[in-house]
């Protein structure tokens, strides 16, 4: 279907940008007419959160790219460290992400 990898990549990226804009543009069109409390929107919200949950879990526990070479136990420990700091230190995102990433980096550097 696609002749060169570069053309394919450009079309893919433009396609991804296009479909994303579709939601935004439709939002503007609907903004005056549609209630965001309705069942359809609630379902769409559920679908997007479920996908995010699935994406995150997969990226941490079953990664595809370079992370696949790192041990599962280190990724799990980094993840737990980040969440622990998040909930223990009053739900602040920055220290949580920092601690999680630092834990992960330390583990893969020294073990």
């Amino acid at each position: 279907m696609i002749d060169s990898p570069t053309t394919g990549l450009i079309l893919l990226t433009l396609g991804a940008i296009g479909v994303t804009y579709l939601w935004r543009g439709m939002g503007v069109l609907f903004a005056s007419r549609v209630s965001s409390d309705g069942a359809v929107f609630q379902w769409i919200t559920c679908v997007s959160y479920a996908m995010l949950g699935g994406l995150i879990a997969r990226m941490i526990f079953l990664p595809i790219g370079p992370l696949a070479q790192t041990p599962l136990i280190f990724r799990t420990m980094g993840f737990i460290a980040g969440l622990a700091v998040f909930f223990l230190l009053g739900r602040r995102i920055l220290p949580a992400v920092f601690m999680g990433v630092a834990t992960f980096i330390m583990l893969i550097s020294y073990f």
């Binding site: 394919g8 079309l11 994303t20 005056s32």
Partner: peptide, 24 residues
């Protein structure tokens, strides 16, 4: 490509309700 774009569309579906609740 079809599935990638479809998945991106779904991952960004939240923009619709976000825009609807923000723009007004």
């Amino acid at each position: 490509a079809f599935f990638v774009i479809l998945a991106v569309a779904l991952a960004n579906a939240r923009f619709l309700p976000m825009v609807v609740s923000f723009m007004p």
